[in-house]
Simulated assay, not measured.
Amino acid sequence: MVPALSFVAGNMVLRNADGNVVDGLNYGEIVDPWASEGYHGISGAGELGCYTESPALEGGTSRRNSSPSSLPMRSVGRYPDGTDNDSNCNDFKLHNTISLALPSEAGTNNIKVSSVADFRIGQKVIVGIDDYEIAKITLIGSAGGTLVNAKVEAGDTIIPVESIEGFSPDQKITLGNGSNQETVVVESATDLRRFWWRPRTDDGPSTFVTVTKPVSYKHDVGEEAVGSGITFSRPLSRAYKKGDQVSSGTPTPGSPNQYVIQ
């Protein structure tokens, strides 16, 4: 008889024909000894036992200056394929997924991304989902990419922007396009919309980057404010839009043991 697969909250249990548990998986930080493999004798604050991260979570942790977005297309799978050490802590890996912070034109070898965490030089990544291509990373810079959304005068230290995702204090970013392009250093990145308990007392910007020194040039609405991003070994063959996915592996919903790490 084929073993049955049952679902219990964030758990999966594989039983044999006699109803005995022969394998199990905890995912999404829900720990049930009946549905898990690995050491569960650890106790104390923050200790949850062995579990596998849910692909629906943003890497299991929240990223600095990140905002809620649509769920990424990614998978958790055994790595290496077919390995079974009887431990949810060690047998499964979640492939890394980020999104484009700004559109990318065909022919460019640099992309602006929401995060550069957990990527490495020499790694092959998949750009896009349906119409995708594989690119090799040659340089990893800094995250963040957005547009100026209110006029900035020379001498200003407040840069109103559409998004602060990826920006962090002491980060160097490029502001402007063409003749007024300049490098500035981020002092802080602020989104007042997240502080719902703070009443607005002026008509200033809600989302802005504060820089350590006054800017040298005037900047208009629609100009870029970007980190250095990720650079590939060769230009991309396709154009990609803001929000398109960049990942370390191919998502495989409904297909077991097909997780890929480049």
Rank of each mutant, 00 (worst) to 15 (best):
I134W: 06
D81S: 12
A143E: 06
I137T: 03
E133L: 09
F92V: 07
P80T: 05
D91Y: 03
N85E: 13
A117P: 00
A150K: 10
H95E: 07
A143M: 06
S104F: 01
S87L: 09
G145F: 04
L94Q: 09
D118A: 13
L147I: 15
D81Q: 14
K93E: 13
K112C: 04
P80K: 00
I140L: 15
I121K: 09
I121R: 08
S142Y: 02
F119L: 15
L94F: 05
E133A: 11
N109Q: 12
T108A: 11
D86N: 15
T138D: 10
S104E: 04
V125N: 03
I134F: 11
N109F: 08
N109G: 04
L102P: 01
A101E: 06
T108G: 05
F119N: 00
R120M: 06
N88C: 15
L102Y: 03
E133T: 10
K112R: 15
V127L: 12
D130W: 08
L100A: 06
G145E: 08
I98K: 04
L102M: 13
F119W: 09
I137F: 01
D118L: 12
I137R: 00
E105K: 13
G141A: 07
D81A: 14
T146E: 09
L102I: 07
G141E: 03
P103K: 05
D84I: 04
K136N: 12
I129D: 13
S104Q: 11
G145M: 09
Y132P: 00
D81H: 05
G128H: 10
S99I: 10
R120S: 14
N96M: 10
D86C: 11
D81M: 11
P80W: 02
G145N: 06
A150Q: 14
E105I: 07
T97W: 01
T146C: 12
K112F: 08
D130C: 03
A101G: 14
I126Q: 10
G82T: 03
D130A: 14
P80I: 05
R120H: 10
S115H: 06
P103V: 08
T138R: 08
K136C: 09
V148T: 12
N96G: 05
E105H: 06
I140Y: 04
V127Y: 07
I134P: 03
V148P: 03
V127P: 02
S99K: 10
S114C: 09
N90E: 15
D131K: 12
G141S: 07
K112T: 05
Q123F: 00
C89H: 14
I111D: 01
C89F: 14
V116D: 00
S115V: 05
S114R: 09
D130R: 12
E105A: 15
V116N: 01
G128P: 08
D84G: 04
G82I: 00
D118H: 13
I121E: 14
L139S: 12
A101H: 02
S142F: 02
V148G: 05
N90K: 11
N149W: 04
I111L: 13
R120V: 07
K136P: 01
N96K: 13
N90W: 10
L147K: 15
E105V: 11
N109V: 02
N85D: 13
N110A: 08
K136G: 05
D131G: 05
D118F: 14
A101D: 04
